[in-house]
Design a binder for these strands. Structure first.
Lengths: 382, 382
DNA sequence: CTGAAAGCGCTTACAG
DNA sequence: CTGAAAGCGCTTACAG
């Protein structure tokens, strides 16, 4: 009960029992040098008998490799990161690597501390979802120090490192085209759109219309807005600014408020596009509160994650991000770098897989909208 | 571009620049011995100037502590484990620990390999959700070797280690009482109930009725069945065996089939209790397929996770497991052991937090059931 | 309070 | 193919 940690069997004891040098025992057990078959057997037998387990710390100290990938996620509890992590873990496991994971909560300072911890733990490489796309001094430093890193989901401006992202503009565009094909013309957008250095929504939309926006360097929700705008432009449908709702925070509650405001105002949309799982959750709360029927009163389409889709009510369409694949790709890239790959940096852009669940209701004749008035609000919460 | 990993600054170089011995430099930088203020400043300055970062591998090799917790989860992508992991990560971070995580997929062999990897990486302790409650030789071995472990969610028979579980019987009982209070008498159960050594469902129910079942050593879904049975007994409602559905696999598809069979048979229940998130998902699929209205046609209550609850349709009740708390508790326990706590092993049983979303519809007069006939099946999939 | 020496458990050249 | 020696970057007694 109170025994201290039993002393581990070391290579020295195995060597002694096998009657060989520690160097030889090490070669057999570590699988790295030449050794004759007879010696191999002797050493293995001795190791087995003593219950020898290699100490990867010692090996790592000397080889400079820990067979470990460090991961800085935003929040591993969210379906997004959980799925990405699973992809990373699968590839790591198949290659004999471990992963040490941390959460940044998208807070720069926390990300710095995480990177620091991972560095001190001597991980062979890092996979990170950068919190800040401008200031990323800590990332530039470790890259300069020779630690390979792979960015996921976002690109730090001018960081010389591999990256894996989803084609957000393309995916969002596909969603909107889907809805337009069903006859909708007034499509509301509920989107985070939190950080954008260059000003307000209006300016951004103007810039985009003139082709002055580089989608690759934007935060995902802004990229999805670009897809929304593109689809409208190509279909010849003017964008009503009132329909484009910038929630301004990654918060379901805020998304709910924004949706309520949109749906209770004049000129209500006939369809709604939410740009991620959390926005969808908030929007659905609003829809419940207003006691709207989907998709009769309102069509809803979400840019979402496969995991979350399971919980969507029937009648809601969604396009899923290939999150496992994003994790797997990132892990493969980092492992290649760890193994000495020095080819130019890659930016892999994954196409969202169009796993649509439910279909968008075709736009019906007018008249239904009046049936659900703001006065009915809260009626669902009997 | 092709530079090799730049050689790290070591304590030796810092010591040289500061004009002190490596032992002294180590004491300052490692914060473990005495040192005068003037020397502290000199050393820190030198370290700063050279960009010194400690190598935790070397420290770990010598101290025998890595400040790392190993975690064997079933599947970190699932909301259950994702939430537990988050709890663990939060406590670990606050104490300066890292976590290395692995997935077992509830497969014993994979769990063994995971434990092996973590052992070789010299984690200070492990948190594991055991895949098999009988055969757990690998766990007994590492415990015997002095590596503390904390079990989560399940208890290995006779394993001398701390554990954190949820009071499943109690939670399930609360659910059923909730439904009974609303007037329901025919309450269907959709549950995994996969592994149970001692035979079939009927035998189990008989055993339980005679108080011959020790809930503590059961798999969670069986514990939830116990709560279902207890609530019936205390309310004086006989259990109809036809209503108790053993899905026999942790599969949403299988849960769906079982639900369809139950709802399309004679003597349909007026309420349904699902014992976890995956069962709920399958059940909801079945309900959609039958085009049933919730809670008008059927009341549904789920034993579930907070994360998943967000996606439940209004009108569905659910009781949530405190998963973050389970992770946090486990992390605190393992840290205490790592710090030398030798008190008797604890088994902490967390009460499910009654975060009910939506309420159970009171049972209405008869007559509604006929309105949804099996013929309507698939009608929702227009 | 500080330093010289030994050592954690392995791997790596270098001889043989 | 095998062994003796050195060393990875730290910490730990042990003297002073």
């Amino acid at each position: 009960m109170t025994e201290k940690r039993t002393k581990n069997v070391t290579i020295i004891e195995v060597a002694r029992l096998a009657g060989v040098s520690t160097a030889t025992a090490g070669r057999v057990l570590g699988g790295y040098g030449y050794s004759s078959e007879s010696i191999r057997d002797k050493v293995r037998e001795a190791a087995e008998k003593l219950g020898y387990r290699p100490n990867l710390l010692a090996r790592g100290l000397i080889t400079g490799k820990t067979q470990t990938i460090g991961v800085v996620a935003g929040d591993m509890e969210s379906p997004f990161y959980a799925s990405v992590l699973r992809g990373i873990a699968d590839v790591a496991r198949s290659r004999g690597f471990g992963i040490v994971v941390t959460n940044s909560d998208e807070i720069l300072q926390r990300e710095r501390e995480a990177v620091q911890l991972l560095t001190e733990k001597q991980v062979d490489g890092m996979i990170v979802t950068p919190s800040d796309l401008q200031t990323a001094q800590h990332l530039r430093e470790i890259v300069a120090a020779g630690c390979p890193i792979v960015q996921i989901d976002r690109l730090v401006h001018g960081l010389e490192a591999d990256a894996v992202t989803v084609d957000n503009a393309q995916g969002a565009k596909a969603c909107i085209e889907h809805v337009i094909a069903a006859g909708h013309r007034r499509i509301g957008l509920i989107s985070e759109l939190e950080q954008f250095a260059a000003g307000d929504l209006k300016s951004f939309i103007d810039l985009e219309a003139h082709g002055r926006v580089d989608a690759a360097t934007l935060y995902p929700s802004w990229q999805r807005l670009v897809g929304y705008l593109q689809a409208h432009r190509e279909a010849g449908i003017p964008v009503d600014l009132d329909l484009v709702r910038r929630v301004g925070a990654y918060s379901a509650e805020a998304a709910k408020e924004e949706t309520l405001d949109l749906l209770q105002g004049n000129g209500r949309p006939t369809a709604l596009f939410t740009t991620d799982g959390l926005m969808s959750a908030g929007t659905m709360d609003a829809i419940s509160e207003l006691a709207l029927d989907l998709p009769q009163d309102l069509s809803l389409i979400c840019f979402d994650d496969l995991e979350w889709m399971r919980f969507l009510r029937p009648g809601i369409s969604a396009i899923a991000q290939p999150l496992n694949e994003m994790g797997r790709t990132a892990a493969r890239l980092i492992l290649a770098r760890i193994n000495g790959d020095t080819s130019p940096f890659q930016h892999q852009i994954l196409a969202p897989s169009l796993r649509v669940r439910g279909s968008v209701a075709p736009l019906k004749a007018e008249g239904r909208q009046g049936s659900t008035r703001p006065e009915r609000r809260k009626s669902a919460k009997a």
